[in-house]
Design a protein around this nucleic acid. Sequence first.
DNA 1: AGTGCGATTGACT
DNA 2: GTCAATCGCACTA
Length: 201
Amino acid sequence: MNAVLPIAREDLPVDAVALARFLLGKIVVRVWDEGSASGRIAETEAYLTGDEASHTFRGMTPRNRTMFGERGHAYVYLAYGTSFMLNVSSGAEGTGEGVLIRALEPITGLDLVKRNRGEAPIRDLMRGPGRLAKALGIDRRLDGVDLCEEGPLWLGSDGYTVPKIGVSVRIGISRDALRPLRFFIAGSRFVSGTVALNAAH
DNA sequence: AGTGCGATTGACT
DNA sequence: GTCAATCGCACTA
């Protein structure tokens, strides 16, 4: 496997849709004292300004403030009182855009991942936003972390490029539910939900 | 201060 | 396929 190198902030697309596509195939790295774990991003969703489904629709609040900050930072929140969600902030500073990471293909550190997730098929360890956060031990303490620095949580690339990107509507939202803002590695077994919708490039 | 509701998951019929 | 768990947050008053 090629070396995994951090991604410079200047290389991150500013636009949330462009970033959602760019992040497919990139790698999320989690670092603890005991070791590290990583996974390749298989599925993302874009949340935009003027988007009723976005937490930022009604403006900046204590919870969503990192979405309004500099791009490339982690926005982590608790959904349904049970599952943490990992997002990458995007957009120019002052705009509340971001990309939800919905699924990863496990790559390294599976022993540490299984400690967090318990026994589960490899395919299911990080398939779903709540599952991947649990697998990597991501909670609100990581909200605001700079993903462009090699800290406890960062984004890397090993040069892999996604051959074909699939597109569909977003999962689990009720408002602004029709726009094609979900992106995934076409054909990947590590994508959540129904995979076959709207294959496109 | 009270209320309603999720960017989900896992267990169960 | 259905459904409860669970709690922080945003909204109303």
